Structures are given as C-alpha cells and as structure tokens.
Amino acid sequence: MKTLKFASKTLVALALCTGFAQASPLVTQWTVTDTATFVPASVLPSSNTYPFPVLSAGNTQLHWGDATQQSGLIITNSVAPILVPTGVLTSTVQITHDNFPIPAATPSNSLASVDILASLTLQSFAPSVGSTILGDITFGVRFLETPNGGTGGVCADGALVGSGGVNANGCADIFVISNNALNFPLFYDSDGATGGLDPEPYFVSFFADGFGTLSNAACLSAGAAIGCRGFETAENQSTTADFKILITSTPFTDVPEPGTLPLMGAALAVLGWLARRRTI
C-alpha cells in the first residue's frame, strides 16, 4: 500500500533512509483538507453568554458585544479537498474579523485570547494515490479590542487616532498569532516499508496573506512579545486573512511570494505530527 509517513525526527530520520536501493517517485500533487475551528475551552473570557465571547456554527464563529452590537471572528473552511501542487503556495482557510462598534459597557469583556485548531488530511495524488494521514496543529491567538479614541489620542499600536490607514476611523483592533508552524516533516514511501524503496522527505509550512510583523507598541498592548506577527483591522470594516499551505521536498528557506510572511519558526518541526488529535 502506498503511504505517507510523518517523521518523529527530522535529519536523523532522513539519514536512516540512505540504505534503500531505490527512491520513491516525487509526489507532484497532494489532496489536502484543512478544517479549522476555535477551541471552546481556550476562549477568554470564558462565559458563553453575551456580552462575553460566544461560539457558534460548529465552533467556526466567535462573537462578542451584545445581542444587537457585535464584533467577531469567522473561520471559512473549504468544503471540498484542495489540490495542492508540491512547491506551490495554496489557499486553504480564511479568517475574517468583523470590526464593528460594541456597547461602551462591554469592551472589558471582549475577546482576549483563543486557540485555533487546524485538523489536516493529506494524501498523495500524483503520481498515485496514497493512504490518508491525519494531523492537528494548534495556533494560539491574542486579541485586543481597542478603544476607538485611544489613550490621550494615541492608539494601542502607537499611532495617532485618525492618522490614516487602519486608524483612519478610530483605533484598529489587533490580532496576533502566537505559535509557529514551519517545516513540519513527513515521509512518502510509494509501497510502504516492504518494497525496498527509499522514503522521500517532504515539509509542510503555513503562511497567511495580510500578516506581518506588528509594531512594538501593538505587540506589547496585546500581551505578546516584541516582533510578534499578526494584523490590524480597521474600524467599521471586515478584514480577511487568507491562510495558505506550502508542501516542499526540501525545508522552506525563502518567502515564496511577495507580501506573504511565515507565521512560524522551524524549532517546533518535530512536535506537530506525531498522532491524530495531538497538538503542539
């Protein structure tokens, strides 16, 4: 049977493969299903009634405010599996922040943090179909609902209120990704462990359009370390971040397209893919 095998070690595992007589053929295309959901137990504040954050729609929507005035985060998953060519950055999941005014009495009860669980199914598609592999990755999110008037006319990101850009209509809210996911290893063996073929390494990385390194003030205001990555969302607008997957036959080292920044570092590569429902 054709199989995909996730590595429990990186370069050490690769070194052990060198004794095989023949290499597995290069996988040029994969079918991928990426289903992202908010983790209910991770929502802070944790109450399930307004004016606290509340989950709905299969844990893909998170709203706060009151019954008539709300902001929220909405995850949009692809309905069907996505065909992902090796080495091509491919869209999977979108996360939208609806940044709308909420009642003056509720900001202290607005979302502060939440985890997002990405449950992935990967399968080799070309040159041939392999067995299904399941894996989970958890991304931590810090969120700051900012007062539109700022503090002394200064927004949480350090810019002046109404100074233009994301702060033109009042102070932007701040969304920070706190975890990493770059170069998670997997191994492909076209006939399992019995056919004398050399399993080939592949690496899975995740990116998001619209993400970048935030200002020191923005990071610190959201309770994150300086150099954090995320995005700011303009008041009275909906802002969408497009999450993408990249599968490569060698570890990722370069930004694959302008304007796209990695969310992660390679230090967690070994931890992400050991078993179904095991998270970082």
Rank of each mutant, 00 (worst) to 15 (best):
F143I: 03
G227S: 12
S78L: 00
V88C: 01
E235S: 09
R142L: 15
F100L: 13
V114L: 04
L83E: 11
G196Q: 02
T121C: 00
F143W: 09
F20V: 06
V114G: 02
S24F: 15
L160W: 02
F243A: 08
A104T: 10
A234I: 02
Q69I: 00
I133H: 06
A57M: 09
I280T: 02
A21C: 07
L197E: 14
G65F: 08
T86N: 12
I116G: 06
L144Y: 00
L274T: 14
P107F: 07
A193K: 01
T33N: 11
Q69T: 09
L62P: 08
F20Q: 13
L122S: 02
G130W: 05
S113G: 12
G192S: 06
L14T: 01
M264N: 11
T28C: 06
N180Q: 10
T37K: 13
A104F: 01
A208G: 15
A222S: 15
K244W: 00
S71P: 07
K9D: 10
V12T: 13
L134A: 04
P258S: 10
N183L: 07
S238N: 05
G153C: 09
T33S: 15
P201W: 13
T151P: 00
T37I: 08
I75A: 03
N77I: 09
A21N: 09
P81Q: 04
A267E: 07
G265R: 08
G164F: 05
D242Y: 02
Q70W: 14
A57I: 11
L120M: 13
T86D: 03
L122C: 03
I174E: 08
L144R: 08
N59M: 02
L11T: 14
L111Q: 05
G158I: 05
D254R: 06
R278H: 08
A218G: 07
T28Q: 08
G158L: 06
